[in-house]
Amino acid sequence: MSKATTAQPASPLSRWWHQWRFHLNILLLLVPLGFMPKYFADASLFRGDSGLGERDIGTLQVGPWSLQLAELRDEAPRPDGPAGYMKNFNAALCDACIEPVKAVYLRIGKPRSLRTAGVIFFGTPYRLGATVPVPLRTQENAELWVTLEGWDGSVHQASIPLKTASPATVAWLKQQGGKP
């Protein structure tokens, strides 16, 4: 006995999928292309092809040495979980400073001693990076302090007003209104 089988009509979803699958695959290829300019800009920034950062602060003289300072991103500090709000800065030591400088520190507010000099920069002398905590109670007239420690034990400090170093951070602090 032979059984006659009749083909069931395809579901509407199945018909739609067979009709549009090619177009959806093309869309999956084109959407990432929209994000490529930002990717290449970030890659250029992190490689150093477009300078030390998005906003160059300038050269800062610290005792007998100098360094070039820049904000990594020209934006307000970003939240970093329990650590609070953080701001990234990059620096490059002068050619004559590479050999005698042991460490470079960065801090908002004047350090009381070398133990409280702030966060230490990391990386090569030509491209150092540091992530500085920005307390919510920071005054708008605060200063960004750079401390350089030499191999001979000497310590030199210099400061730059925060409004000069990072106008976006000062604007963010004004917006916060001194909230604890």
Rank of each mutant, 00 (worst) to 15 (best):
M1T: 10
T5V: 12
T5L: 10
P9D: 14
P12T: 14
L13Y: 14
L13E: 09
L13H: 06
R15H: 07
W17I: 05
Q19D: 08
L24H: 06
N25P: 06
I26A: 14
L27F: 04
F35S: 14
M36S: 07
P37V: 15
K38G: 09
A41D: 14
A41W: 02
D42S: 02
D42C: 00
A43Y: 00
A43T: 04
D49Q: 15
S50Q: 15
S50Y: 01
S50K: 04
G51E: 00
G51T: 00
L52S: 01
G58V: 03
T59E: 15
Q61Y: 07
W65A: 07
W65T: 02
A70W: 00
D74A: 11
D74H: 03
P77N: 12
D80C: 02
Y85F: 11
M86P: 03
N88Q: 14
F89Y: 10
N90H: 09
C94E: 14
A96W: 09
C97W: 12
C97M: 06
V104D: 13
G109A: 04
R112T: 13
L114T: 10
V119T: 03
I120A: 07
F121N: 00
F121C: 06
F122P: 00
P125M: 13
P125T: 07
R127Q: 13
L128G: 06
G129H: 12
T131E: 14
V132C: 08
V132I: 09
V134G: 07
P135V: 08
R137C: 05
E140V: 04
T147S: 08
W151D: 07
G153P: 02
S154G: 06
H156Q: 13
S159P: 00
I160Q: 05
L162E: 05
A168Q: 10
V170T: 03
Q175W: 04
Q176M: 10
G177E: 12
G177A: 07
K179F: 08
K179P: 01
K179N: 13
